[in-house]
Design a protein around this nucleic acid. Sequence first.
DNA 1: GCCCGGGTTTTGAGTGGTCAAAAAACAAAG
DNA 2: CTTTGTTTTTTGACCACTCAAAACCCGGGC
Lengths: 228, 228
Amino acid sequence: MPLPSSTVENYLKTIYKAQAAQRDHGRLVPMGHLAQALNVVPGTATTMVKALAESGLVHYEPYAGVRLTPAGEKLAALVLRRHRLIELFLVKVLGMSWAEVHDEAERLEHAASDKLIDRIDNMLGRPATDPHGDPIPDSSGSMVVRDYQTLLTCPLGTPVVLTRVTDQDAAFLRFLEGNSLKPGQKLRIEARDDAADQVVVRGKRDAKITIGMRAAAKLQVAPAEPEG
Amino acid sequence: MPLPSSTVENYLKTIYKAQAAQRDHGRLVPMGHLAQALNVVPGTATTMVKALAESGLVHYEPYAGVRLTPAGEKLAALVLRRHRLIELFLVKVLGMSWAEVHDEAERLEHAASDKLIDRIDNMLGRPATDPHGDPIPDSSGSMVVRDYQTLLTCPLGTPVVLTRVTDQDAAFLRFLEGNSLKPGQKLRIEARDDAADQVVVRGKRDAKITIGMRAAAKLQVAPAEPEG
DNA sequence: GCCCGGGTTTTGAGTGGTCAAAAAACAAAG
DNA sequence: CTTTGTTTTTTGACCACTCAAAACCCGGGC
Ligand SMILES: [Mn+2]
Ligand SMILES: [Mn+2]
Ligand SMILES: [Mn+2]
Ligand SMILES: [Mn+2]
């Protein structure tokens, strides 16, 4: 059992995230989705997945799709852990923008040793989430998955706090940053208009921000704690 | 011109270091040395070097050896820059031991972007040398190479300062650390005995340290500045 | 000049990862 | 059912990198 190549790690991570994205826990991830997410041609994904199945990391059902085995799931979670701790480290310690850390972490996640990752984890105070609000698995590979509302589904008027952004696109993140829409920010939904494809929110210093519904769906929120 | 793979980067870096190690600037590095340093079989090195020559990174002379072209030299220097800045960063910012940072940097050097490296360089105050005293090339790929004496060649009795350690072996580095033999340390050679394979030095708090001559040759020193 | 030995190159093969294009399977609709 | 369109798999090929082993070159020694 040689250490998994970065290709293998990327496949596992992608399956993991696809699995998490579909509500139904035990469903199979279709080959097409996997290929597209990994930017390879479908035949490549098929070949690779068969190899992963051979080494016991995934369960593969021809013409149906793929799902991680417990072994694969643990490995994937550890890659995700490395990725997210590195992102947070780059932001907190090196002062990089949350818009650019994703690409950097995409490569570093395969090169950083567990020893280094633990050191980073420690220095950051064992954080629970990364700069985008994504949960960070612990060193055993388990993590707390909370089920948030989005700016599309949460109640109007009541104060909420932005907890997670589910899109790593740099331009999108820069836009959000420019409007102070980062995790931790308190918000209140003013209005939603399906026909106009608009969601209007009040943010920092009561500034009014209008975004489209596809963007709104990428912003997850929790009920704001009534504090001090 | 796709970015060089980490394999290519390792070949270039190894040729660079071999070239630097032989006094004669323009001599060719023999294939055997290269293969051994890279832990590959000689035939592999030959094949690879021919490919490097094809892309203009090295000059290759069959049965004679290989030398970097200006393009190859610049690329190699930048890999070295990444490696050494990462090492220093791991020691200074993350508190890792100078004995373990080499292996970590060996992988990270291929994954870190120039943007990240510049940030690290900045945070460290544009340092001139890494934790082992190796010079750090600037972002254009040039660096100051100074010619030091070693504990084997320097004059007896006169105070010197340890400037560089030319062996990355973790056990050796731990031994040195245990005896406070790190760059910056002031020393004075007490005695040298060829027959007994011994070099005796006075170090921190006048502690007496005796090391073998092969080890002594790996410790480079400069005349100590007489400072207040 | 010839041979010998150490270093070097060639050859043939294998692994991991990928694509293009043809073939096969499936789902959905008539 | 049968047809149609989409998804998936198969096939054949290729590239980067590697090794084992055979063939080769070349600088001494005789
Ligand atoms: Mn990755
Ligand atoms: Mn993230
Ligand atoms: Mn390396
Ligand atoms: Mn070093």
